[in-house]
Design a protein around this nucleic acid. Structure first.
Lengths: 229, 229
DNA sequence: CCGGTACGGTAAACACCGTTCACCGAAGTA
DNA sequence: TACTTCGGTGAACGGTGTTTACCGTACCGG
């Protein structure tokens, strides 16, 4: 059989990504190899170049896939709660749980110096998080609290707020999504990401084992800061 | 010259590490290759196995080197300030500056799911940070503040405190390094690491550009939480 | 129905990688 | 001086990304 019958393109593409991801989670990033993927699919490595221009290209699409999955999972999870506070709790806890359950995927998407927004940042999860959390925070009673927005951040936060507004679906009134809300949102993301990265990357001091409690403590802190619950 | 004259072992070892690091910094982790290192040293790749048992072994030593350098740099930096608050400021800002200036080194040491404490955690930077910061916080007036230690963390914090006490040099009285101080310390590390990782890994929402101000804002927040200046 | 073309595969090859092996000469030591 | 140790060498193996030339199948227009 020097010539396998042609496969369905879309299906093969799916299988490539699935295999790549499977290798990633089971054996780490250095194991996601064009030859290994092809081998698993009963195909030769150069055939993969009909689908992706390089290994790096494939990995980039993988990143996007992971983002999309995470986004979908958290979106549905959030939809199961209707109290605004409960939703933000579900969102934060869901993000942490996902990250701890999928460390390889997490570090692929959130843990590389070059993993930033190369060009297709449209579905970078950060945006989705901010979308969901923005809705929640704007829906719930959010503080005109005295953690004054630092002047040096004011300009950035205006831009941030603008981007959030045009990102929202359904669109949100600009009156409820104030600069203060944007500030709170940003601080929330910083702490959430930071705590999760700390755990996934194993930087919690070793005597501390109850990382769940540590996370909940941070969570409580954040909510208190926003005057919620 | 089928047989180069034997080199000084220690010197060659230094050169290996230096070359490896140089490759890491200039071309990323995938460029730190045994053959490339050897080539640069005018040596053949198998010779490196007289120094390290594998590439991974070399990288592990590289990690330790980076840790040691960072530790030394921050230790001297901290020593230039004598006010406790100033010292913690110098420490935190210094850590951030170093990380942003050395993203590859940072992600090598602090950004891999397996980068945790494998066996030689003695010089993991976390410990050093905690050592320095512990001295500072214990020296300065630190709060018996009402951010009560959560019961679920109490046990862990006892262990953490114990480890800190035996880590301190000069040793510290157990009365000044209370469980509350350990708690504050832990929270401080969580936020510092989180914020820095966020920046290094490019997860700050794009409209926000003044990341320095964002960091300072977090810093102020932390100090306020500890009742400092 | 038939010829052309686009496409999705192949095999071979190149350069590079980590790693192992047998070997070997210089350096140091008994 | 003889011997051992040690830090190098070259060759080789299997693996990798990537390029190239090729080739048969499937489809599409005349």
């Amino acid at each position: 059989m020097t010539q396998a019958t042609r496969r369905d393109r879309g299906r093969t593409d799916q299988e490539i990504r699935a295999q790549a991801r499977s290798l990633l989670v089971s054996d780490g990033p250095q194991a996601v190899t064009l030859r290994a993927i092809a081998r698993e699919l009963g195909i030769t490595a150069p055939a993969l170049y009909r689908y992706y221009s390089s290994r790096e290209d494939l990995v980039a699409h993988l990143r996007a896939d992971v983002c999309a999955d995470l986004t979908a999972a958290l979106t549905t999870a959030v939809s199961t709660a209707d109290d605004p506070v409960a939703r933000v709790l579900v969102l934060c806890r869901g993000f942490r749980s996902w990250a701890l359950a999928h460390p390889q995927e997490f570090s692929l998407v959130f843990g590389s110096p070059s993993a930033g927004p190369p060009d297709l940042e449209k579905d970078s999860f950060g945006r989705v998080f901010l979308g969901v959390a923005g809705q929640v925070l704007a829906t719930g009673a959010v503080p005109a609290r005295p953690d004054a927005v630092p002047g040096s951040l004011r300009e950035d936060l205006e831009g941030f707020r603008a981007e959030l507004l045009e990102l929202m679906s359904p669109p949100l009134s600009g009156e409820v999504l104030t600069v203060e809300v944007a500030h709170a949102l940003l601080r929330c993301w910083v702490r959430l990401y930071g705590q999760v990265a700390l755990e996934v990357f194993g930087q919690v001091p070793t005597p501390v084992t109850n990382t769940g409690a540590l996370f909940e403590s941070t969570l409580l802190d954040m909510l208190a800061e926003f005057g919620l619950s």
